[in-house]
Design a protein around this nucleic acid. Structure first.
Length: 449
DNA sequence: TAGAATGATTTCGC
DNA sequence: GCGAAATCATTCTA
């Protein structure tokens, strides 16, 4: 292409149908008559048209021959002119772009926030404003937030500049590559310097649009950093269904002396209650524990809430406790009448002789089985106290029968398991193991004891 | 719609 | 890391 202007003047007088410019390009060319020149042009065009039908080797040879043809430069210029007039005029209107106000806004913002521009002191005012906006407390809190903000801003700034540098480098490399490619191709197909220039412009526009995206993302990151975080995350919750609450309550009241389910028990309870993750939309995870552990967290939450609310207002829960005690007792009766004592004891926090908490064998009856065999926390005492516990159970059953006989809730149930300090009884010294000779006041819902 | 109930989260102590 | 206690936020209920 570089030598074309020079060559352009060495050919003249060649006419081309539909393109008067060709004769102009050929002007001054010494040579043959008009018919001969037309024959030349026709030959060249014919060869160009059929070049794709040939094999690669033939085409290469033909290409070389065409490049060396005396008419080639003139014809090349004509094709370039035609291409420019057609393609560029079509694209011209589309590519006219107004000055990018959005980009200017982004640049201004990044400058104001201290992301672009000089680093020293940049963004400190914004940091102070952000710290103030976040409603942070006075003094140390404020300065801590300030330094935290600055550290994060610095990180954003660093990422921004690294990415920007990468984009610029990539843009330059790609532009150079395309220019070289087009220059090379311009030897064999009509590509003018003007078109190469236009292509470079397109590349630059594409890269600047990528740059704009980078600037936009950076601005968003700064905005997020500046926005005051809510003190507490927005949380969604659903009440557990009735059945799930029943199961949890049953467990709670049947282990009132030690209402701390083991991990296995929690798992079983979670399964039994059909507490599923899908019931909840967690806005964020607790570390990496947002998986199956979520189930146990919910069970743990429930027991945590229950324990504390029970302890705070025992009187209020008495009726509920009685109800579950009665239910447990009735279940126990059913179990004992069916001779189910062979079932292994279902015990929380247990290991060894007392067996492990297992609800899978008999549905709700797991409570009953527990009632018969006692809590695992009793450890070695279990064996010795089995008989007394069974007696206690019988006592409870007799009490449940007394509901209609005017037995009050307070008679039916007394809060066990909570020691004088307001805490739950030590697991190794359950006070809820009652003698069958005790009065009604000593009978409680934790019938397993 | 206000108040109660309840599940979830945070803070603190052990 | 677990549990108690306080608190928040949502849901339920009268």
């Amino acid at each position: 292409m570089d030598e074309q202007p020079r060559l352009m003047h060495s050919h003249a007088g060649v006419g081309m149908a539909g393109h008067p410019g060709l004769s102009q390009h050929m002007e001054g060319t010494g040579g043959t008559d008009g018919d001969g020149r037309k024959q030349d042009i026709g030959d060249i065009l014919q060869q160009i048209m059929t070049i794709t039908d040939q094999s690669l080797d033939e085409a290469q040879a033909r290409k070389h021959a065409l490049n060396c043809h005396r008419m080639k430069p003139a014809l090349f210029n004509v094709l370039c002119e035609i291409k420019e007039k057609t393609v560029l005029s079509i694209r011209g209107a589309q590519e006219e772009e107004p000055p990018d106000a959005q980009l200017m806004r982004l640049d201004n913002m990044l400058l104001a926030e201290g992301v672009s521009g000089p680093e020293k002191g940049g963004g400190s005012a914004a940091a102070a404003a952000a710290a103030a906006a976040s409603g942070g407390g006075a003094g140390a809190d404020n300065s801590a937030e300030h330094s935290d903000y600055r550290a994060k801003l610095s990180q954003i700034r660093q990422i921004y500049h690294t990415e920007l540098e990468k984009y610029e480098q990539a843009c330059n490399e790609f532009t150079t590559h395309v220019m070289n490619l087009l220059r090379e191709q311009s030897r064999t197909r009509p590509i003018s310097p003007k078109e190469i220039e236009r292509m470079v412009g397109i590349i630059h526009r594409k890269f600047s649009s990528i740059q704009m995206q980078l600037k936009q993302s950076t601005c968003e990151a700064v905005m997020i950093l500046r926005s005051p975080l809510p003190r507490r995350q927005v949380r969604k919750r659903r009440n557990f269904n009735k059945q799930a609450t029943e199961i949890l309550n049953e467990y709670f009241y049947s282990h009132l002396s030690n209402p701390y389910p083991s991990e296995e028990a929690k798992e079983e309870l979670a399964k039994k209650c059909s507490i599923t993750v899908s019931q909840y939309t967690w806005n964020w995870t607790r570390g990496s524990t947002f998986t199956s552990c979520t189930l146990f967290v919910q069970v743990s939450n429930w027991f945590g809430n229950k324990r504390i609310r029970y302890k705070k207002n025992i009187g209020k829960f008495q009726e509920e406790a009685n109800m579950y005690a009665a239910k447990t007792a009735v279940n126990a009766t059913n179990v004992s009448s069916h001779g189910s004592q062979a079932n292994s004891p279902s015990t929380p926090n247990s290991a060894g002789s007392a067996g492990s908490f297992n609800m899978s064998n008999s549905g709700d009856l797991f409570m009953s089985v527990q009632s018969l065999n006692g809590d695992s926390y009793q450890g070695a005492q279990v064996g010795a106290n089995v008989q007394s516990q069974v007696d206690t159970l019988r006592h409870v059953i007799s009490q449940t029968g007394g509901y209609s006989e005017g037995l009050t809730a307070s008679q039916m149930y007394s809060p066990q398991g909570i020691n004088a300090n307001g805490g739950w009884q030590d697991a190794t010294t359950p006070s809820s193991v009652t003698s069958p000779t005790e009065g009604p006041g000593s009978v409680h819902s934790d019938t397993s004891n």
